[in-house]
Structures are given as C-alpha cells and as structure tokens.
C-alpha cells in the first residue's frame, strides 16, 4: 500500500552543470515518522530537500509525496502549498518587509479566513511555543538574532500544523536548551497531529531523541538508513567516521 509512505523517492538524479550531486538515490519516508538526514557539509542534503519540494529540477527518477507524483500537472506546489506542508529553509527565508508576527501569520492569512485578533493570538502562541516572546513578534527580520530567525522560520513552517514538515538544520544556531525545547515541540506535534517530519540535521542529540529513523547521505546516495542504533553499528566507512569521530564519541560513551 503506497499510503504507508509520505514521501517516496526512487532513483533520483540531480546535478548542476557537469556535476552530479544526487546520484540514483532512493528514499522512503513513512507516514507519521520523523526522519533525520545526515551527510557531509556540501554533500547535497539541502539539494535533496529542495528537489523533493520541487525547487530544483531533477534529471531523472520519481518523487511522490502523499501519493502525488511530482511530475503530475501543476507540480507538487500546486497540489500542496502551505496547508499541506511547511518548510524551514536553512537561511530562514523570512519575508524581510514583514515583522516576525506577520511572517508567522502569512500562511494563515493566505489559507484560512480568520479574524485579525485571532490570527494575532495564534501567531503569538506559535512564537511562544518556539520560545519567543510576543515583543519579539514586532521585530523585523533584520532585527532578529540568528537563532531567533531560525525560530520564527520554524513557527512559520508550523503555522498551519501541516501534515509534512521539511526542516533544514532547524537547531543549528540554537542554544542547547532551545534545541531541547524544539525537540520536545516536534515530538508533541508528531504525537498529536501525526506529523511527518523530514529533518536535515547535524545535531546528534536531536537525532538520538526525536528521530524515529536516521538516513545517511554520502556520495549522492543513501548509504545507511535505520534507527540510531543501526547507524551506530553501520559498517559504511563514512557513517563510522561520522558517528565514531572524536566529537561523536561522547554520545554513545557508556556511563561509568
């Protein structure tokens, strides 16, 4: 049954000029799971995410999201758009002429008919859930710190509680406490709304605590996929280097 999968990618090829970034990659994301994607910096994680969303043309392969084929008329953004999926871009991509609150309200305003006061309350609630105060809501994107930008972008991605959320390094630039709150928020939303999350991250703690499965991208392919424990035991040299490097050792050190 295809319905079991939220995202199905098979045999995907993506490249720029003469360089192939994604090379015959296949990946399935189950409905309601949180999938973490790891990979080298510059390895093509953002490119993979943007291709699934339909922002980068693919050279070959198939992409299906919620049973919709990306090649169907109108493309996925026509079928989906904000009500069905929320996207957090690596650089935030906030609308620079709108305040933080207006940024969060934007999908609500475009997709639901609500009164202004209720939209304000919802936007404030979202901002507070990602750890910002209502006063931060009045700031323009240029007045936000790097981590605050991330959080506003996250609040915007979650504004409509969409069925699928794509997150590109959501916790980079956040302090560990904020990152922990973020993990808890994602977990709560997954539990309540049955959210499917496709998350690119380098945050080992996030991978361990929230991700149901982790996929490793190397050489343009998924070289390992499974639970965190599966990946820790993987034999692939790059995956070993990633999880057993100096920085990662503390993660699975046995408590003495």
């Amino acid at each position: 049954m295809t319905d079991q999968y939220a995202i199905r990618v098979s045999d995907l090829v993506v490249g720029f000029g003469r360089r192939t970034v994604i090379d015959h990659l296949s990946l399935d994301v189950r409905r309601g799971e949180i999938l973490g994607l790891v990979g080298a910096s510059g390895g093509g994680k953002s490119v993979l995410m943007r291709t699934i969303i339909g922002l980068i043309p693919k050279r070959g392969g198939r992409i299906e999201v919620m049973g919709w084929d990306a090649d169907a008329a109108g493309g996925l953004n026509g079928h989906f758009g904000a009500p069905r999926w929320g996207i957090l871009f690596q650089q935030g991509a906030l609308f620079s002429s709108l305040t933080a609150r207006q940024n969060v309200q934007f999908p609500l305003r475009e997709n639901a008919s609500l009164s202004q006061s209720l939209m304000d309350e919802i936007a404030d609630a979202k901002l507070e859930m990602v750890g910002l105060t209502p006063d931060d809501g009045d700031k323009l994107p240029s007045e936000l710190s790097g981590g605050m930008t991330k959080r506003v972008a996250l609040a915007r991605a979650l504004a409509l509680d969409p069925a699928i959320v794509f997150l590109d390094e959501p916790t980079s630039g956040l302090d560990p406490i904020a990152a922990g709150d973020f993990d808890a928020l994602i977990k709560t939303l997954q539990k309540t709304l049955g959210l499917t999350v496709f998350m690119v991250t380098h945050d080992l703690a996030s991978l361990k605590t929230v991700c149901d499965r982790v996929a490793a991208l190397a050489d343009g392919k998924i070289v390992a996929i499974g639970s965190m424990d599966d990946l820790l035991n993987s034999e692939h040299p790059w995956v070993r280097a990633y999880f057993h490097g100096k920085r990662s050792l503390m993660l699975h050190k046995k408590p003495d």
């Binding site: 859930m129 006063d135 709560t188 309540t192």
Partner: peptide, 19 residues
C-alpha cells in the same frame, strides 16, 4: 491521550500581556 500534550502546551501560551 494523543492530544493531551498539545493541549497542555497551549495552556501555557499567551499568558503574558503584551505591553
């Protein structure tokens, strides 16, 4: 039971009055 956490989270928000 599935909704409890979200309802609990929402209960905490918007408690402070905006100046």
């Amino acid at each position: 039971e599935r909704h409890a956490e979200l309802i609990e989270d929402v209960r905490k928000v918007n408690r402070t009055q905006r100046a």
